[in-house]
Design a binder for these strands. Structure first.
Lengths: 119, 119
DNA sequence: TATCATACATACTTTAGGGTAAGTACTTGT
DNA sequence: ACAAGTACTTACCCTAAAGTATGTATGATA
Protein backbone atom coordinates (compact mmCIF):
# COMPACT_ATOMS: atom_id res chain seq x y z
CA UNK A 1 0.00 0.00 0.00
CA UNK A 2 1.10 3.51 -0.74
CA UNK A 3 2.38 5.72 1.99
CA UNK A 4 -0.09 8.30 3.16
CA UNK A 5 0.89 11.49 1.49
CA UNK A 6 1.54 13.85 4.33
CA UNK A 7 0.18 17.32 3.90
CA UNK A 8 2.86 19.32 2.19
CA UNK A 9 4.58 22.00 4.21
CA UNK A 10 4.51 24.18 1.15
CA UNK A 11 0.74 23.96 1.03
CA UNK A 12 0.43 24.90 4.68
CA UNK A 13 2.68 27.85 4.08
CA UNK A 14 0.64 28.85 1.09
CA UNK A 15 -2.44 28.88 3.24
CA UNK A 16 -0.64 31.05 5.74
CA UNK A 17 0.61 33.37 3.00
CA UNK A 18 -2.91 33.71 1.64
CA UNK A 19 -4.06 35.04 4.96
CA UNK A 20 -1.20 37.41 5.54
CA UNK A 21 0.17 38.57 2.19
CA UNK A 22 -2.27 40.61 0.12
CA UNK A 23 -0.35 40.11 -3.09
CA UNK A 24 -0.52 36.36 -2.67
CA UNK A 25 -4.29 36.70 -2.46
CA UNK A 26 -4.31 38.57 -5.75
CA UNK A 27 -2.03 36.04 -7.38
CA UNK A 28 -4.42 33.25 -6.53
CA UNK A 29 -7.03 35.05 -8.62
CA UNK A 30 -5.11 36.55 -11.51
CA UNK A 31 -1.60 35.20 -11.06
CA UNK A 32 -1.32 33.85 -14.53
CA UNK A 33 0.09 35.11 -17.76
CA UNK A 34 -3.20 35.52 -19.56
CA UNK A 35 -5.68 36.71 -16.99
CA UNK A 36 -4.46 40.28 -16.64
CA UNK A 37 -4.33 40.51 -20.41
CA UNK A 38 -7.92 39.36 -20.71
CA UNK A 39 -8.99 41.77 -18.01
CA UNK A 40 -7.17 44.56 -19.78
CA UNK A 41 -9.13 43.98 -22.95
CA UNK A 42 -12.39 43.75 -21.05
CA UNK A 43 -11.57 46.95 -19.23
CA UNK A 44 -12.28 48.74 -22.48
CA UNK A 45 -15.85 47.52 -22.40
CA UNK A 46 -17.79 44.28 -22.93
CA UNK A 47 -16.54 42.09 -25.72
CA UNK A 48 -17.81 39.11 -27.61
CA UNK A 49 -15.89 35.88 -27.43
CA UNK A 50 -14.77 36.28 -31.00
CA UNK A 51 -13.67 39.84 -30.38
CA UNK A 52 -11.50 38.72 -27.51
CA UNK A 53 -9.93 36.13 -29.77
CA UNK A 54 -9.08 38.78 -32.31
CA UNK A 55 -7.84 41.15 -29.65
CA UNK A 56 -5.54 38.50 -28.20
CA UNK A 57 -4.35 36.55 -31.24
CA UNK A 58 -1.58 34.81 -29.30
CA UNK A 59 -3.98 32.90 -27.06
CA UNK A 60 -5.54 29.63 -28.14
CA UNK A 61 -9.27 29.08 -27.99
CA UNK A 62 -8.95 26.41 -25.36
CA UNK A 63 -6.95 28.56 -23.02
CA UNK A 64 -9.07 31.61 -23.61
CA UNK A 65 -12.30 29.94 -22.68
CA UNK A 66 -10.67 28.11 -19.82
CA UNK A 67 -9.64 31.38 -18.25
CA UNK A 68 -12.94 33.03 -19.01
CA UNK A 69 -14.69 30.25 -17.08
CA UNK A 70 -12.30 30.61 -14.19
CA UNK A 71 -12.68 34.37 -14.13
CA UNK A 72 -16.43 33.92 -14.20
CA UNK A 73 -16.19 31.38 -11.41
CA UNK A 74 -14.15 33.81 -9.35
CA UNK A 75 -16.75 36.49 -9.91
CA UNK A 76 -14.50 38.80 -11.87
CA UNK A 77 -16.21 38.44 -15.21
CA UNK A 78 -19.82 38.20 -16.27
CA UNK A 79 -20.97 36.11 -19.20
CA UNK A 80 -24.12 37.03 -21.08
CA UNK A 81 -25.49 34.82 -23.82
CA UNK A 82 -28.26 35.78 -26.19
CA UNK A 83 -30.24 32.69 -27.18
CA UNK A 84 -29.80 33.22 -30.88
CA UNK A 85 -28.07 31.37 -33.60
CA UNK A 86 -25.26 31.77 -34.35
CA UNK A 87 -24.53 32.34 -30.67
CA UNK A 88 -23.96 35.82 -29.34
CA UNK A 89 -22.01 35.82 -26.11
CA UNK A 90 -20.47 38.82 -24.41
CA UNK A 91 -18.07 39.01 -21.54
CA UNK A 92 -17.69 41.97 -19.25
CA UNK A 93 -16.06 42.87 -15.96
CA UNK A 94 -18.11 42.49 -12.82
CA UNK A 95 -17.92 45.09 -10.11
CA UNK A 96 -15.17 43.12 -8.44
CA UNK A 97 -13.42 42.78 -11.77
CA UNK A 98 -13.62 46.50 -12.35
CA UNK A 99 -11.97 46.90 -8.99
CA UNK A 100 -8.86 45.53 -10.64
CA UNK A 101 -8.69 48.33 -13.16
CA UNK A 102 -6.29 50.43 -11.09
CA UNK A 103 -3.94 47.47 -11.14
CA UNK A 104 -4.22 47.11 -14.88
CA UNK A 105 -3.93 50.84 -15.44
CA UNK A 106 -0.80 50.98 -13.32
CA UNK A 107 0.63 48.19 -15.43
CA UNK A 108 -0.13 49.97 -18.67
CA UNK A 109 1.41 53.14 -17.35
CA UNK A 110 4.58 51.37 -16.34
CA UNK A 111 4.88 49.67 -19.69
CA UNK A 112 4.55 52.95 -21.50
CA UNK A 113 7.20 54.60 -19.37
CA UNK A 114 9.58 51.70 -19.78
CA UNK A 115 9.16 51.65 -23.50
CA UNK A 116 9.76 55.33 -23.92
CA UNK A 117 12.94 54.93 -21.88
CA UNK A 118 13.85 51.93 -23.94
CA UNK A 119 15.31 53.64 -27.00
CA UNK B 1 15.11 14.20 -41.82
CA UNK B 2 12.85 16.16 -39.63
CA UNK B 3 10.55 18.71 -41.08
CA UNK B 4 11.67 22.26 -40.57
CA UNK B 5 9.66 23.57 -37.69
CA UNK B 6 7.95 26.56 -39.13
CA UNK B 7 7.88 29.58 -36.91
CA UNK B 8 4.80 29.26 -34.79
CA UNK B 9 1.96 31.63 -35.53
CA UNK B 10 1.45 31.96 -31.82
CA UNK B 11 4.99 33.24 -31.41
CA UNK B 12 4.54 35.79 -34.17
CA UNK B 13 1.38 36.94 -32.54
CA UNK B 14 3.13 37.20 -29.22
CA UNK B 15 5.67 39.47 -30.80
CA UNK B 16 2.89 41.61 -32.18
CA UNK B 17 1.11 41.65 -28.84
CA UNK B 18 4.31 42.72 -27.12
CA UNK B 19 4.46 45.77 -29.30
CA UNK B 20 0.84 46.75 -29.04
CA UNK B 21 -0.53 45.55 -25.70
CA UNK B 22 1.06 47.21 -22.68
CA UNK B 23 -0.14 44.57 -20.28
CA UNK B 24 1.49 41.87 -22.36
CA UNK B 25 4.74 43.75 -22.01
CA UNK B 26 4.35 43.73 -18.25
CA UNK B 27 3.45 40.06 -18.20
CA UNK B 28 6.67 39.21 -19.97
CA UNK B 29 8.52 40.72 -17.04
CA UNK B 30 6.47 39.81 -13.99
CA UNK B 31 3.79 37.52 -15.37
CA UNK B 32 4.44 34.74 -12.96
CA UNK B 33 2.98 33.70 -9.65
CA UNK B 34 6.01 34.51 -7.54
CA UNK B 35 7.50 37.64 -9.04
CA UNK B 36 4.92 40.13 -7.84
CA UNK B 37 5.11 38.56 -4.41
CA UNK B 38 8.87 38.96 -4.32
CA UNK B 39 8.59 42.54 -5.49
CA UNK B 40 5.99 43.20 -2.84
CA UNK B 41 8.36 42.10 -0.11
CA UNK B 42 11.20 44.11 -1.59
CA UNK B 43 8.99 47.17 -1.81
CA UNK B 44 9.26 47.40 1.95
CA UNK B 45 12.99 47.91 1.66
CA UNK B 46 16.10 45.87 0.83
CA UNK B 47 16.15 42.36 2.18
CA UNK B 48 18.72 39.67 2.62
CA UNK B 49 18.23 36.42 0.80
CA UNK B 50 17.44 34.65 4.06
CA UNK B 51 14.96 37.33 5.01
CA UNK B 52 13.12 36.85 1.75
CA UNK B 53 12.97 33.13 2.43
CA UNK B 54 11.42 33.73 5.81
CA UNK B 55 9.05 36.31 4.40
CA UNK B 56 7.86 33.93 1.70
CA UNK B 57 7.89 30.53 3.36
CA UNK B 58 5.88 28.89 0.59
CA UNK B 59 8.58 29.37 -2.01
CA UNK B 60 11.46 26.94 -2.38
CA UNK B 61 15.05 28.09 -2.43
CA UNK B 62 15.55 27.05 -6.00
CA UNK B 63 12.60 28.97 -7.30
CA UNK B 64 13.36 32.00 -5.18
CA UNK B 65 16.86 32.40 -6.46
CA UNK B 66 15.80 31.57 -9.97
CA UNK B 67 13.38 34.46 -9.98
CA UNK B 68 15.80 36.79 -8.24
CA UNK B 69 18.28 36.17 -11.04
CA UNK B 70 15.66 36.79 -13.67
CA UNK B 71 14.49 39.96 -11.98
CA UNK B 72 18.08 41.08 -11.76
CA UNK B 73 18.60 40.24 -15.42
CA UNK B 74 15.54 42.28 -16.30
CA UNK B 75 16.88 45.21 -14.32
CA UNK B 76 14.12 45.23 -11.76
CA UNK B 77 16.17 44.12 -8.80
CA UNK B 78 19.68 44.90 -7.63
CA UNK B 79 21.88 42.38 -5.88
CA UNK B 80 24.58 43.52 -3.50
CA UNK B 81 27.01 41.07 -1.95
CA UNK B 82 29.39 41.89 0.86
CA UNK B 83 32.52 39.79 0.52
CA UNK B 84 32.31 38.34 3.99
CA UNK B 85 31.76 34.92 5.34
CA UNK B 86 29.14 33.79 5.99
CA UNK B 87 27.85 35.61 2.90
CA UNK B 88 25.81 38.75 3.25
CA UNK B 89 23.68 39.43 0.20
CA UNK B 90 20.91 41.96 -0.08
CA UNK B 91 18.33 42.44 -2.78
CA UNK B 92 16.55 45.68 -3.48
CA UNK B 93 14.36 47.22 -6.13
CA UNK B 94 16.03 49.20 -8.88
CA UNK B 95 14.51 52.41 -10.10
CA UNK B 96 12.62 50.49 -12.74
CA UNK B 97 11.54 48.00 -10.12
CA UNK B 98 10.27 50.76 -7.88
CA UNK B 99 8.24 51.95 -10.82
CA UNK B 100 6.15 48.85 -10.29
CA UNK B 101 5.15 49.83 -6.81
CA UNK B 102 1.89 51.48 -7.92
CA UNK B 103 0.95 48.14 -9.46
CA UNK B 104 1.75 46.25 -6.29
CA UNK B 105 0.04 48.83 -4.13
CA UNK B 106 -3.09 48.64 -6.25
CA UNK B 107 -3.05 44.88 -5.83
CA UNK B 108 -2.73 45.12 -2.07
CA UNK B 109 -5.55 47.61 -1.96
CA UNK B 110 -7.82 45.38 -3.99
CA UNK B 111 -7.04 42.37 -1.83
CA UNK B 112 -7.91 44.28 1.30
CA UNK B 113 -11.19 45.48 -0.12
CA UNK B 114 -12.13 42.03 -1.33
CA UNK B 115 -11.34 40.45 1.97
CA UNK B 116 -13.36 42.92 3.95
CA UNK B 117 -16.29 42.25 1.64
CA UNK B 118 -15.70 38.56 1.96
CA UNK B 119 -17.46 37.84 5.24
C1' DT C 1 -27.87 19.88 -49.99
C1' DA C 2 -23.91 21.93 -48.59
C1' DT C 3 -21.54 25.63 -46.38
C1' DC C 4 -20.73 29.20 -43.14
C1' DA C 5 -20.48 31.39 -38.65
C1' DT C 6 -20.33 31.30 -33.61
C1' DA C 7 -19.09 29.59 -29.21
C1' DC C 8 -17.69 26.32 -27.42
C1' DA C 9 -15.98 20.90 -26.00
C1' DT C 10 -12.80 17.14 -25.86
C1' DA C 11 -8.89 14.04 -26.45
C1' DC C 12 -4.17 13.81 -26.79
C1' DT C 13 0.60 15.39 -26.52
C1' DT C 14 4.26 18.45 -25.16
C1' DT C 15 6.59 21.69 -22.32
C1' DA C 16 7.86 24.66 -18.78
C1' DG C 17 7.63 25.45 -14.19
C1' DG C 18 8.00 23.96 -9.91
C1' DG C 19 9.18 20.47 -6.03
C1' DT C 20 12.64 17.39 -3.55
C1' DA C 21 16.84 16.42 -2.02
C1' DA C 22 21.42 16.69 -1.69
C1' DG C 23 25.86 19.05 -2.13
C1' DT C 24 29.37 23.19 -2.01
C1' DA C 25 32.47 26.94 -0.02
C1' DC C 26 34.17 29.36 3.64
C1' DT C 27 34.77 30.76 8.40
C1' DT C 28 33.37 31.05 13.32
C1' DG C 29 32.16 28.84 17.46
C1' DT C 30 32.47 24.46 20.75
C1' DA D 1 37.29 17.49 14.76
C1' DC D 2 32.79 18.77 13.95
C1' DA D 3 28.55 21.31 13.48
C1' DA D 4 26.39 25.60 12.18
C1' DG D 5 25.19 29.44 9.28
C1' DT D 6 24.73 31.70 4.63
C1' DA D 7 23.88 31.85 -0.13
C1' DC D 8 23.72 29.43 -3.31
C1' DT D 9 24.10 25.02 -7.20
C1' DT D 10 22.85 20.81 -9.35
C1' DA D 11 20.39 16.74 -10.71
C1' DC D 12 16.31 14.45 -11.06
C1' DC D 13 11.32 13.96 -11.08
C1' DC D 14 6.35 15.32 -11.45
C1' DT D 15 2.52 17.84 -12.51
C1' DA D 16 -0.24 21.46 -14.14
C1' DA D 17 -0.64 24.34 -17.85
C1' DA D 18 -0.52 25.12 -22.46
C1' DG D 19 -0.54 23.64 -27.46
C1' DT D 20 -2.66 20.85 -31.42
C1' DA D 21 -6.30 19.10 -33.66
C1' DT D 22 -10.74 17.85 -34.37
C1' DG D 23 -15.67 17.67 -33.34
C1' DT D 24 -20.52 19.67 -32.08
C1' DA D 25 -25.14 22.29 -32.31
C1' DT D 26 -27.99 25.44 -34.67
C1' DG D 27 -30.19 27.99 -38.11
C1' DA D 28 -29.55 31.23 -42.09
C1' DT D 29 -28.08 31.63 -46.59
C1' DA D 30 -26.74 30.19 -51.49
Amino acid sequence: MTAIKETSVIQENKQYALETCPVTYVMEKIGNYWKPIIIYHLSQGPKRYSELRKAIPAITEKVLIQHLKQLEGDGLVIRKAKPVVPPYVTYSLSKTGKGLMPVIDAMALWAQKERSNGF
